[in-house]
Structure formats: structure tokens, C-alpha cells
Nucleic acid binder design. Structure first.
Lengths: 153, 153
DNA sequence: TTCTCTGCAAAACGTTTGCAGGGCG
DNA sequence: CGCCCTGCAAACGTTTTGCAGAGAA
């Protein structure tokens, strides 16, 4: 945890940005809730618990900054809010998401499933891939089981 | 073109919706600019050229309706606007996008590249896939060539 | 000092909604 | 009549911005 903060601090310094207390508090929230795909508002409320004087605009500016530095990925599941996802440490590939249309849960896939697909895109379309976004919408394991149970009961 | 309008008309009727003049004008714009990934505002301005009395809200309501009927796909490239993409006639699989980070152009991939990946997700995660969104961000062929030219000149 | 960063409030943006009226069965 | 649909304007929720001040180098 601490060394990840250190690492981000260095990334900021490398571009002459500072890790201010507000920025650090924001980063800590993202680290603590790494699995949660928080919206800016979510982050704001959590940061406010530790540092009540922080402003929403600062959170937005921090998330924007972290996004530019590729410390976080800004993702969008189509519900009108941007969500912010810490990049896995040292991960070269981006992670994908399984969004359940029943319960709204979001699962992460860390495996890189797109190696072959990227090669096809580069070879057949001459498109140089820098980043990708892949989201599956469907029914998660739990909801499938729940559906079966309610049928048999 | 006309038979595609007919088809959509039938889809609407099947759910007891009407193809009003405003809806038809909207659909025509989508058909004419099929390659263009228009935002609601874009559609509105284009429809207004033919039917100046139309309101923006009607365009939104129509796009929403067409989206529910799966006539169009609502997509989001992360720039804060929803875009609307006519579904290819008879296409069972959804299409993917190549977004150029240099010039902003959007290319479509109609091939279904994700068959194998979906199987992995279903088998390994027990997740029942209903839909997917795949977007690559990178540099398109033209921009790569332009970059090479400006280096050699 | 100079420069970055912050908090607040206001503004901007895309989108949705309430409502009164229109059109058609 | 009843019902669906429309246009307008207002409202909404998210995100951005202007600005004056705080704080560090």
C-alpha cells in the first residue's frame, strides 16, 4: 500500500506535479476500494470522511490528472457516470469488465484476452492499437443460480 | 433504403408504436449517415434541415425508443456524448470500433472477433454473455502514414 | 515573488421530464 | 371521447471553469 503511494508520488513528480494531501487522500481511497469502480461522487464522499474540507472540484481535477498519468482508467458503463479504476501495478494490459444486467455487479477480468484480436486488427486494418475497452453485458453466476432456484422452488 | 424503413415500421407496429413523420425523418437521417456515429445533437441538426419544426426532445425520445427495439445501438466513446449506431440488417453480432486518438475518426469492424473470448468468459467465469462492447483506441492507417511522411520530408 | 493547487460557486453540458396541446382512431 | 405523440421550457445530474486566496519553493 505505502509503496504504491510512493510509486504514484514519483510518477507525479516526474511530470512536476505534487502529491498534495488532497491528492494523497484521493489516491488512498482508490487503493482501499480498488475493486469497486467508484464514481467521482463516490470518491468525493469517501475522501470527505477523512478530509472534510476537500472540494468536489479537487476530486475531479485529481481524477483527471491521474487519468492522464495512466494511474487510473476512466471507464463508462453507459449509466451516465464516469468511473475510475486504478490500474493494476505493473500490468501492461488493461482489464476488462463483466457487467451484470440483473444485479448491476461488476466483475473484473485481469487476464489479457485480446492478444490475438489485437494482432488481427493491426494486420488486417493497419490500425496501431494503443488501448482497448472491452465490456461484456450479461448475467453473472449468482443471478443465474438465483434464477434456477426460483424456478425449482 | 425504403425496404429498411418498411422493416423498422413493422418493428414499431409490432410493439404498437407508430412511425410518425418525426420518427421517420430521424430514421432516414440514421440511414443516410450510417457510417457516422452521430450524437443526438448531430441527428437533431440533420433532421431539422428536413423538418425544422422538430424538437430536440423528440429526437431523444425517438433514439431511446429505437434503442429499446434494438434498431440502434447506443454507444459511448468516453467523450461525454452518447452516439447512436444503426444495427446492420440481419447482423447477429455487434460491431466493434477503432477510434483514432490522432484524428478522431471512427472505423467499424463488422467481423465478430470475440467468439473465442466469449466462450472463455462463459466457461471460466460462468458469466452468460448477452452483449459486448469492444473499442480499440490507437492510431489509424492514414495518421500513421502522415506521421511517416512528415518525418521524411 | 512566482507558481501550483485549492475551495467555492457558478456555469456548462448532455439528457430527461412536466405539461399543455395536437392529431388520429 | 381516449390515447399516443409532440414541442417547448424547465429541471436534472454530472462535470468543468473562473476566480480569489492559500501555501510551498
Amino acid at each position: 500500500m505505502e509503496h504504491r503511494i510512493e510509486r504514484i508520488k514519483k510518477q507525479l513528480h516526474a511530470q512536476s506535479y505534487k502529491l498534495t494531501p488532497q491528492r494523497e487522500a484521493t489516491v488512498r481511497v482508490l487503493l482501499e476500494r480498488e475493486e469497486d469502480h467508484l464514481s467521482a461522487e463516490d470518491v468525493y464522499l469517501l475522501v470527505k470522511e477523512k478530509a472534510p474540507e476537500i472540494g468536489l472540484a479537487t476530486v475531479y481535477r485529481t481524477l483527471e490528472l491521474l487519468s492522464e498519468l495512466k494511474v487510473v482508467d476512466k471507464i463508462n458503463f453507459g449509466d451516465g457516470v464516469s468511473r475510475y479504476d486504478l490500474r493494476k501495478e505493473g500490468a501492461e494490459h488493461f482489464h476488462h469488465h463483466l457487467v451484470c444486467i440483473e444485479c448491476g455487479s461488476v466483475e473484473e477480468i485481469v487476464d489479457d484476452l485480446l492478444g490475438d484480436v489485437e494482432k488481427i486488427v493491426e494486420n488486417d486494418w493497419g490500425f496501431q492499437v494503443k488501448d482497448h475497452r472491452l465490456t461484456f453485458h450479461g448475467v453473472c453466476k449468482q443471478c443465474q443460480e438465483t434464477a434456477v432456484q426460483s424456478k425449482t422452488s
